[in-house]
Nucleic acid binder design. Structure first.
Lengths: 136, 136
DNA sequence: AGTGGTTTGGTACTTTAGTATGAACAGTTT
DNA sequence: AAACTGTTCATACTAAAGTACCAAACCACT
């Protein structure tokens, strides 16, 4: 967040400098009008692209990147989260147990607490909720 | 595609008009320098945002749109597809039956054929496979 | 050294999911 | 008309998922 403010500050300063520079260059007759306008246009065109990419990138992160804070808020532990990921891969409890070197009853324990924490009745519902929360 | 070319053509014409307009306004002394520069800057800033949004939007659609051809290739019927969507919402067979005004055993029939067609052993695995195929 | 949270695992049970098979009906195609 | 496909539903069964309750072991903390 501090970085964003810093970058934007620099950007505004750079633009003001460009503004003044082009003005004086024009007045002193070193630069003709079309070139000045063109430079301004190109610079602001790329500034527009840059700003837009930044904001879209953030939105993209929000919609596809994992919300680790939400995982903490829901008090989902490491093991439970591993089980949740395995469920999203379509594995059965037995397969998850084999993958994580655990017994099936341990997996059932984890699944049950996951369902409670996600307020779901089934594993498929848990998946849907987890996707809504951007935690898988 | 034709539409895109048309829009870009219009955009370029509008910009050239703006360019000429600002030039004559400047020369005739109706507009001072700062305002001209500011208008150009603002216009190109938004043009940059617009173009960037267009290109990003296309990419976004391409990665999330449903592959209807794949559904046909897998020979998944309308009803089966409705059931698949309901499964992805985390519903149980009973809930799906209620939603579609069918009996639970009908849903089981549909689910079974879905599992065969998607080559899945469980509904959760069917979801994962369906997502891979971009059909949900 | 005890507290609290996590992880692990067990038993016994209920519920849900999934399979197999058969059957009736509607609409489409050959 | 006959064959085909999709949809509907039933019964009977097995497998998997999920609940409830308990308990031991571990780890980090202070």
């Amino acid at each position: 967040m501090k970085k964003t403010i810093f970058v934007f500050g620099l950007l505004i300063i750079a633009l003001l400098l460009l503004f003044q520079l082009s003005k004086y260059a024009m007045i002193s007759g070193n630069l003709n009008f079309e070139i000045t306008i063109a430079i301004i246009a190109v610079v602001f065109f790329f500034v527009g692209i840059y700003i837009n990419k930044k904001s879209l990138h953030k939105r993209k992160i929000a919609s596809t990147e994992i919300n680790h804070q939400k995982i903490k808020d829901l008090e989902i532990s490491k093991r439970e989260y591993e089980v949740l990921q395995a469920i999203s891969e379509g594995l059965s409890n037995k397969e998850i147990a084999y993958k994580l070197f655990l017994s099936e009853s341990t997996i059932k324990t984890h699944v049950s607490s996951l369902l409670i924490k996600l307020n779901a009745k089934r594993r498929t519902q848990a998946l849907q909720i987890a996707k809504d929360f951007n935690i898988i």
